[in-house]
Amino acid sequence: MSIEIKNISKSYDDKLALDNISFSIKKGEIVGLLGPNGAGKSTLMKILTTYLSPDKGSVLINDYSAVTQPMDIKRSIGYLPEHNPLHLDMYVREYLKYIACIYKVDKKQIEPVIQDCGLSDHANKKIDALSKGYRQRLGLAAALISNPEVLILDEPTTGLDPNQLIEIRNLIREAGKEKTILLSTHIMQEVEAICDRVIIIKQGQIVADKILKDLRASKEQIIEVEFDYRVENILLENLPKVVAVKNTVGFVYEITFNTDKDMRGSLFDFAHDNGLKTLQLNQKNKNLESLFIELTKA
């Protein structure tokens, strides 16, 4: 395993930020870490990069212990923090030479990384003159300069315009062909566009760990229906293929079916047979967004 987390917990004074978290990431996986604000994502990223130590549990990255071998981990990972700490008065190539010197990397690595990250036309520019998108490219280049086996990216696409988003997504996907990547974000579309797997955390605990391919292939569908009168949940639960029924507000019901057949017709027939009027009838896919909302709402 490239990353192996076992039963880690972390508290700040009396506040529990991480509560007995465990997961592992295989070599070559691109995994998205999702969670609402205050879920513990930042704390987890700081532990993985050895900025913080867990109160209990173990963290292994590339077979190095975060507790006893933090410098070995720092040498073996690439890290792009949320607030990309660049030296704005330096030039792009100069900055990458500086990073290469810190990692004691052969200077021959610099030009290929500049080319791979699409910085060739900007290599002689001052960082202060770069757009947000190119600063993110530079941050990614700095994370890749030592050719690490593991990349840890914290909110790598925040603040980018649509064209810049696509460019950074492509860079991350390309890097993921050879490296293990853990990507923390609050943007579900980024996880769906880039990742193979998603881990969702809420209040310091893992509430979901899903392969995105399996989630996309799920037969579950959610239908939101509004009648003109209240209906007992048990009547809706007796419909074929029903998994769950929830009265969300007023006369609006959210019904989950386990079938790929469109069940709106069955609900329309149910309303007709019971003397009800159907005021609205909407089908929703059981996608990452609906899963996230279901698992993380208060």
Rank of each mutant, 00 (worst) to 15 (best):
residue 3 I to N: 04
residue 5 I to M: 07
residue 6 K to G: 04
residue 7 N to V: 03
residue 7 N to Q: 10
residue 8 I to N: 08
residue 11 S to G: 11
residue 17 A to D: 11
residue 18 L to F: 13
residue 18 L to W: 07
residue 21 I to C: 14
residue 21 I to V: 15
residue 21 I to F: 13
residue 24 S to T: 14
residue 30 I to P: 08
residue 31 V to R: 09
residue 33 L to Y: 12
residue 35 G to I: 11
residue 36 P to W: 14
residue 38 G to M: 09
residue 40 G to F: 15
residue 40 G to V: 14
residue 42 S to Y: 13
residue 43 T to S: 15
residue 44 L to C: 12
residue 47 I to E: 04
residue 50 T to K: 03
residue 52 L to R: 08
residue 53 S to H: 10
residue 54 P to C: 10
residue 55 D to F: 02
residue 55 D to I: 00
residue 58 S to N: 14
residue 59 V to H: 03
residue 63 D to T: 12
residue 66 A to L: 07
residue 66 A to M: 06
residue 70 P to V: 05
residue 73 I to K: 05
residue 80 L to G: 00
residue 84 N to V: 15
residue 85 P to M: 13
residue 86 L to I: 09
residue 89 D to S: 13
residue 99 I to M: 11
residue 109 Q to H: 15
residue 119 L to D: 06
residue 120 S to I: 07
residue 120 S to R: 10
residue 121 D to S: 14
residue 122 H to N: 12
residue 124 N to G: 10
residue 127 I to F: 06
residue 127 I to S: 01
residue 128 D to F: 10
residue 130 L to I: 01
residue 132 K to Q: 12
residue 138 L to V: 03
residue 138 L to K: 02
residue 141 A to S: 03
residue 142 A to S: 15
residue 145 I to H: 02
residue 145 I to Y: 04
residue 146 S to D: 04
residue 151 L to H: 05
residue 151 L to M: 09
residue 154 D to K: 00
residue 156 P to W: 09
residue 156 P to M: 07
residue 157 T to M: 09
residue 157 T to W: 06
residue 158 T to P: 12
residue 158 T to V: 14
residue 159 G to A: 14
residue 159 G to Q: 12
residue 159 G to N: 12
residue 161 D to A: 05
residue 165 L to T: 02
residue 166 I to K: 12
residue 168 I to Q: 07
residue 171 L to A: 08
residue 172 I to S: 09
residue 173 R to I: 12
residue 174 E to Y: 11
residue 174 E to V: 02
residue 175 A to D: 00
residue 179 K to S: 01
residue 179 K to D: 00
residue 181 I to H: 09
residue 183 L to V: 11
residue 186 H to Y: 08
residue 186 H to L: 06
residue 187 I to A: 11
residue 188 M to K: 13
residue 190 E to W: 06
residue 193 A to H: 02
residue 193 A to G: 04
residue 194 I to T: 01
residue 195 C to Y: 03
residue 196 D to R: 02
residue 198 V to C: 11
residue 203 Q to A: 11
residue 207 V to P: 14
residue 208 A to W: 08
residue 209 D to M: 05
residue 212 L to F: 04
residue 213 K to N: 09
residue 214 D to P: 05
residue 217 A to F: 07
residue 220 E to N: 08
residue 221 Q to W: 13
residue 225 V to R: 01
residue 228 D to C: 05
residue 229 Y to F: 09
residue 229 Y to G: 03
residue 233 N to I: 05
residue 235 L to F: 02
residue 238 N to T: 03
residue 239 L to E: 05
residue 240 P to H: 01
residue 240 P to W: 02
residue 241 K to Q: 13
residue 241 K to G: 03
residue 245 V to Q: 02
residue 248 T to E: 07
residue 249 V to N: 05
residue 250 G to T: 00
residue 251 F to M: 06
residue 251 F to N: 13
residue 252 V to H: 02
residue 253 Y to K: 05
residue 254 E to H: 01
residue 257 F to R: 06
residue 260 D to L: 06
residue 260 D to R: 07
residue 265 G to I: 08
residue 271 A to Y: 05
residue 272 H to E: 10
residue 273 D to F: 07
residue 274 N to Q: 03
residue 275 G to R: 00
residue 277 K to S: 09
residue 277 K to C: 05
residue 278 T to E: 09
residue 278 T to F: 06
residue 280 Q to R: 14
residue 280 Q to P: 04
residue 283 Q to L: 15
residue 283 Q to P: 07
residue 283 Q to S: 13
residue 284 K to Y: 15
residue 285 N to G: 06
residue 287 N to P: 02
residue 290 S to N: 14
residue 295 L to H: 08
residue 296 T to D: 09
residue 298 A to V: 15
